[in-house]
């Protein structure tokens, strides 16, 4: 009898565990994945398509300069990544990933700061500062047109689940999850805007609303503030995990950084 109870309990447990996916937590259909570019007005699309009209290239230019120049005390990025070194084309499409030295999840901005402290004897740059935006815009622009392709492994899986959980968790006074707008209602109107699927392939992005270039984490903070939730800090573990979830969710989309968005 006792054994029978245990068997029933185990059955119940496995049923909750994985067998039946929660219909309220269904991922975006991979066949329906479409870049935020598709939801732009023709005028904004034209602004992104022309590398001169795209104001994001102000940061790309500046980033390219910083990349080559280095600082008084340290070597430049180009001295490692230049001719004959480790080229950075396509690298941004594979972030976020695990930093081998610390075993922690890191994104492109984090990796740039790791390079600075570990290899260049330089101080890490402030998040959302002009220099880090410029360098990340430049490095991300080297992967333009390449498909986002983050491969999940055992070390990334827990972060992925954490990010996925963030995406599906209701928060804020409006009690909305990312999922409610970006999975269930994309393509529909939210005040003056068309709701996109919320992909990360265009970041760092020049937002017309910001009148400047900004990182994905700044965008997350905007969304969290929009549903009147307490935003997380830039480069927090929650946002890094969310970034990872979005990279997997938007796999195959072409990198558009620096994109132009309303």
């Amino acid at each position: 009898m006792k054994r029978g109870c245990l068997a029933v309990a185990l059955l119940l447990l496995s049923a909750c565990g994985d067998a039946a996916p929660d219909p309220d937590r269904a991922d975006l259909d991979p066949n329906a994945v479409v870049s935020g570019y598709a939801f732009l007005t023709p005028e904004t699309q034209a602004q992104q398509d022309d590398d001169f009209l795209n104001p994001g290239f102000l940061w790309v230019d500046r980033g390219a300069k910083l990349f080559r120049s280095g600082e008084a005390v340290s070597a430049s990025c180009a001295s490692c990544h230049g001719a004959g070194g480790r080229p950075l084309e396509g690298v941004a499409a594979r972030y976020p990933r695990i930093d081998e030295a610390t075993g922690k999840l890191t994104n492109l901005e984090g990796r740039i700061n790791v390079c600075r402290t570990r290899h260049q004897a330089a101080k890490p740059l402030a998040h959302e500062g002009e220099d880090l935006l410029a360098l990340s815009a430049y490095v991300a622009s080297l992967s333009r047109g390449m498909p986002v392709s983050v491969q999940l492994d055992d070390r990334l899986r827990p972060y992925y689940e954490q990010g996925r959980d963030y995406f599906f968790t209701r928060r804020g006074q409006l009690n909305l999850a990312c999922h409610h707008c970006h999975d269930r209602n994309w393509g529909r109107s939210l005040r003056g805007d068309t709701i996109s699927q919320g992909h990360a392939n265009g970041f760092p992005t020049y937002r017309l609303e910001w009148q400047t270039l900004g990182s994905l984490h700044r965008r997350f903070r905007d969304c969290d503030t929009g549903v009147r939730a307490e935003p997380m800090s830039l480069a927090s573990e929650e946002y890094l995990a969310l970034e990872l979830y979005l990279a997997v969710r938007g796999a195959g989309l072409a990198v558009e950084a620096p994109a132009v968005r309303p």
Binding site: F52, F57, L58, W59, D61, R62, E130
Partner: peptide
Amino acid sequence: MNTIRIAA
């Protein structure tokens, strides 16, 4: 540092 872009 004011970045400038010119097309001519």
